[in-house]
Design a protein around this nucleic acid. Structure first.
Lengths: 197, 197, 197, 197
DNA sequence: AATGAATGAGTCTTCATTCAT
DNA sequence: GATGAATGAAGACTCATTCAT
């Protein structure tokens, strides 16, 4: 690293990602709290205090990447939701996209499920806002299906959450019976069968 | 607290429960790792070192209660499974019992979902054994239903886990649309509808 | 103490010595086990945790200096042993050097005699290796003397150890009858007289 | 142990010995400081607090037996010293008796050499008084020998201590070349040879 | 006489963070 | 921009001793 050259915001973000990726495995293996800044610095191949040039404190390392991931899933879902397709198909596509995204960022989401609670309550609330938006989008889709007479009169929010909550376990089960995508299709079938008239 | 009197095993267990209950809220609020032994002692109204008369170390506090809870759910499920009822009815009753047990021990199970990973791998394995047994019991029920022609030919293990994984979110959602029991009935309806012929 | 400057290995070793020297008196007065890291830090004029930048743990403080001292005595003895002098003269010179070294590092050796047992067995073994080498060197000298007909046919290892074991008490007696060097001459005379023909 | 029966002083002393003997091996293996009262109690097969019925505190356990041992050696030496024998023979007999006593109470003396320093300075002084008496007795013997023209004009105190300091290593060497008694004879020969005219 | 439950003081060690260079 | 030396606060855990029974 040449000294004295000012990093652009993009370069900074790039480095931030590198740092996070370097530490991700250890975060998962030992837990976020249990991983020390010294360890993170070593994994990232930099000095302890240089971390503080990229993140204000330890928690920020967690938040930075989480915000991005949440944003990405939400945006992708919004894009799909805007397509001129039936509620049923959009629902399936969103869940498939969501699954795919988690599969691709498997470690990241694993970390969030278990270490997200380590963030300050302020940051936890922001994360929850995102989750609510997502739930509401699926709820809206189910409501549309009900109004269009495709789905039975189920509680749309309960159903939406039921569906969302099946994704994570599919990716992380220690006893998979097939590829996540295959298991997810099975679940989607049961679910769709269960809410369709 | 009397000083030199010998405690019976029962009294010891009672005290252990008291200590755990005293600390439970803080475990949940701040996390198990983030709660210090000093804090636990204060909450339990005893000296720091007296904790070690009841638990060998910090982790044991977690294990002691978890072991019990797991055992209870498993035993209850076995009892129901042995009743001369149709697979469908037994499935519903087990899930209802399970839900009820979690509702009654809401905080406890919340803690296990999020802090279970803090246990030593040895203890995590024992917990997983229990979970596997439970999953297998439900899988067996679904298989029976399939054989009896009541259920469609779904992947029984995927279906069993799908069902199990909906319980926790029902109890802990921050946006409930009704009593957990009511939400669970909705989910059971969707699920049963989804797997029935 | 400058804060962010990188210390060279030499500077580190120098600081290590300073820390040890600062704590030496207390080690002797109260014992190594009985001296706390907090105390050592205070005596060394630094923060408790800074000690761990110089020593991996408490035991390492002991080992670091011991290793050096052992090495020094052994090397000096080897140098003298290589001189073209009679066994008798070499024996005398080695013992005199040894005495001198202990006199100069009086506290250090006192500490080792009494607190060496506090080291991990692994480190104790390494120390014993050094002692054996030293014993064997003196034994060799005595054997040479016997072969050359200067000394009587004594058990050379027993004699070597007899001689070595007289040094420490000479330095540390609480009732000295003269300078250690003088007392040692007296002992060497008795010893030489005792083994000579 | 029947309750309510008052122990005589002799019975108390007997129990004290039992407690000490039970813990002796552990004292040596791990060190006195490193052995906890709980451990001692377990080894002695009694309750923690019952120890305090026999010893005022942890240190007293060490002192009690040490005083006895010192007293015994001193008395035996005095008895031999009063025999109508030549200084040379008395010297040899005392050292032989001393060696025998250490061999028979090997562990005990090993403990004192290394853990004696753990006693309060008050108790250490009492122990030193005893040692001085013993040294002076041997010094007196050597002085007699010099006056009688049997021994050369050596420093009698230095010589006495030289002799005393060879006993412990003979018993505890990790590389014995024979029975302690045999090695001691070798040393006595060298010593006598060294001081005789 | 005998016990073990209770405890406060103290142990070694770790860590996020700061700051002089 | 980058570093690692420095540190106070805190952590889990141990222990000699007391005391009610």
């Amino acid at each position: 690293m040449p000294k004295g050259i000012v990093l652009t915001t993009d370069e900074q973000n790039h480095r931030r990602h590198e740092i996070f990726e370097a530490a991700l495995d250890t975060f998962i293996e030992k837990g976020f709290v249990e991983t020390s800044m010294r360890e993170i610095a070593e994994l990232a191949g930099m000095g302890k205090s240089s971390l503080y040039d990229y993140f204000g404190n330890k928690e920020d390392i967690l938040i930075f990447v989480m915000e991005e991931a949440l944003e990405n899933v939400l945006n992708n879902a919004r894009r799909i939701n805007a397509l001129p397709l039936s509620p049923e198909v959009r629902l399936r596509q969103i869940i498939e996209m969501h699954l795919e995204y988690i599969v691709e960022n498997k470690k990241l989401f694993y970390l969030f499920s278990y270490e997200g609670r380590r963030m300050s309550s302020e940051n936890q609330q922001r994360a929850q806002q995102g989750r609510y938006m997502y739930q509401d989008m699926l709820r809206g889709l189910i409501e549309q299906g009900i109004q269009q007479g495709i789905f039975r009169e189920v509680d749309p929010l309960v159903a939406a959450r039921m569906l969302i909550n099946t994704i994570i376990p599919v990716v992380y089960t220690s006893r998979p019976t097939g590829a996540p995508q295959v298991m997810m299709q099975e679940i989607l079938d049961i679910f769709m069968n269960g809410i369709q008239k």
